[in-house]
């Protein structure tokens, strides 16, 4: 009986095998690229909010401190999203006819909260706490990026676990003096590693515990 496949078919199999391997590698590379891209991480992607609030205007332009609105950042796990009342503290008097602010006025009148979309979110199995980070010398900018330059708010970092661990493994590289936590312009000194170790010591940061699973996952 004659062979079904000619001898040349052997080459075809090799070519096909190579194509499968290369294709899979290519697919893997693409999937990884996608996983790391802003399309998935949402880093640097602004969300369309009910009011196009500008941190650039309010923080850099007017010099309002983060804590004017995010009042519980030093005392609670949740930094706090300001109630409409906070917006109206100023906007009951200025820009009172601005169309852009109509949802704010409507919310104040009807006592129905504005529905802001969360920009910075971690999975529900992560028990993140703002107060401990702020009180131990992690600056706002370290995790949120230059919020004072964001005309529309977006994530400044990926907030992925690998990213968190950079600091949980070596906090001395990132900590700043307590007085500079809310300073959006602070730059690390040349001897940050040495200064950072001092801050780690003075703030009683237990570095050996920072990579325990249960520090963040309960």
């Amino acid at each position: 009986m004659a062979q079904i496949f000619p001898k040349k078919a052997n080459d075809l199999v090799k070519v096909l095998a190579a194509a499968v391997v290369l294709g899979a590698c290519g697919l893997g590379t693409m999937a990884t690229g996608l996983w790391l891209s802003p399309f998935i991480t949402q880093q640097d992607v602004a969300k369309q909010q009910v009011v196009p609030f500008s941190h650039l205007h309010h923080v850099k332009g007017l010099g309002i401190d983060c804590r004017y609105c995010h009042t519980t950042v030093e005392t609670s796990s949740f930094a706090g999203i300001p109630p409409t009342e906070t917006c109206m503290s100023c906007h009951s008097q200025i820009w009172t006819n601005a169309k852009m602010l109509e949802p704010v006025r409507a919310s104040f009148k009807t006592q129905k909260p504005l529905e802001w979309l969360r920009v910075n979110d971690v999975p529900d199995f992560v028990y993140f706490n703002h107060s401990i980070h702020v009180n131990k010398g992690v600056g706002c900018v370290t995790c949120h990026g230059q919020v004072d330059e964001m005309a529309l708010t977006h994530k400044g970092q990926t907030l992925r676990m690998g990213w968190c661990l950079q600091c949980h493994r070596a906090p001395e590289q990132f900590l700043r003096p307590p007085s500079e936590v809310f300073n959006m312009q602070w730059q690390p000194p040349a001897d940050q590693s040495a200064k950072g170790l001092e801050l780690v010591k003075n703030n009683h940061v237990k570095v050996e515990q920072l990579t325990n699973c249960s520090v963040c996952h309960r």
Partner: peptide, 13 residues
């Protein structure tokens, strides 16, 4: 279901 657990975070809907 572990990313989005049946619990409320502050100020959630």
């Amino acid at each position: 279901d572990m990313w989005n657990q049946a619990k409320y975070k502050p100020l959630a809907k």
